[in-house]
Design a protein around this nucleic acid. Sequence first.
DNA 1: TTCATACTTCGATCCTAACCGAAGCATCCA
DNA 2: TGGATGCTTCGGTTAGGATCGAAGTATGAA
Lengths: 226, 226
Amino acid sequence: MKEGPDIARIGTLIGDPARANMLTALMGGQALTATELAQAASVSLQTASSHLSKLQDGGLITQRKQGRHRYFALADAAAGSLLESIMGFAASRGHLRQRPGPKDPALRKARVCYDHLAGDYGVRILDSFIAREVIETDGENLAVTESGRQAISELGIDLEKLAPSRRPLCKSCLDWSERRSHLAGTLGKALFQHFLDNGWARRSSESRAVLFTPEGERRFLSLFPL
Amino acid sequence: MKEGPDIARIGTLIGDPARANMLTALMGGQALTATELAQAASVSLQTASSHLSKLQDGGLITQRKQGRHRYFALADAAAGSLLESIMGFAASRGHLRQRPGPKDPALRKARVCYDHLAGDYGVRILDSFIAREVIETDGENLAVTESGRQAISELGIDLEKLAPSRRPLCKSCLDWSERRSHLAGTLGKALFQHFLDNGWARRSSESRAVLFTPEGERRFLSLFPL
DNA sequence: TTCATACTTCGATCCTAACCGAAGCATCCA
DNA sequence: TGGATGCTTCGGTTAGGATCGAAGTATGAA
């Protein structure tokens, strides 16, 4: 039975708590330095360095040198998806590191999931789209409807520009705080980016939380009614 | 950073080579006894027993007592999907346990992937469906087209009966021998079952290979032209 | 040049968990 | 009832790898 892909190698990489913490931190979507990742994982810089080179060898992360810093980020969207899958599965089996759902209310409300919005607000986007038939679903797969294309362009998103990407346009991602699906894929990313670009929301500097301005909050709730 | 799902726990479970071998064996879709799984993983029965209880605690597998045997199987389709994701990712990064693709030509040609067909033949089904517009895709998500519903019912599959399932109807699954996608989901399962039910194919007793009868081979090639 | 910062490599320690022998429990068969 | 099979539990050993101190390399600042 020595056929096939080496899933044990990927498992081992993700199976160490320090590495898992680093990967979780990188799910924030931003590149982080070795020092920052060492703090995120609560290990020394030497230990972090060793972990990072293993993650890189395994193809989960990439590094970019910039001056005397080295920035580490998830290798690509596939790596992000993989971690999302595992998070969803772990959450579905009740494997949480503390109580169900994030303790911090801000994280529960809205947080970054690699490159799109998760938490209460993330789930709301998908719920609203499905209720208004912007997106249709067969249980897991998502597709934009004809009438939905119109609605999305009215939000200020150019679907034509997103289409050429090799990543799927919409994808569902199991939310571990809400235990329901939210919108991932290039559309999910574009919507999140749209809110950042307009200054309606920003990333928290300490955690994966996303903070909305009062103006952004108002817009969000009216753009995604239930 | 102690928020969120415990991905390290899942990673650790999958990260041990013996457990990974057991899970890979269970991807064949059939329930296996502890003794069989011990052989698959090349460990003693005691060691296997310990691994199996860990996998069960982690929610990856279930056991069913039957007389003096205990049959172990993947917990559900979600567990199968998770393993598929990881296999796909591992293969995409070139993490293979030997040379790329299965050594055994029969495995390359057709094998079981939890509950549907993989390998050359598995990829062919999806290729054929897409070429004939039975299924449409946006890169990763799959959906049956209107005209496709007709074609599928002509194959002898009742789509209405598959629809109520909570699992997605069609799903792509990265094939590690072909490095391309094949058809998973309830439709993929139903098609595979259809071939088994009609006696056109059967599972190999030793491996995950699927063996076609000459009659089954002929039918397969004509039902799924390229 | 010199010092400081950011990170890697080396080496030694220590701890977890995989492993198996032996014994125990449960089920089936004769 | 006795013995065989299938599996689990217990206990002790061992190996792999996570960890960090110390030393080494690279970049930037003074």
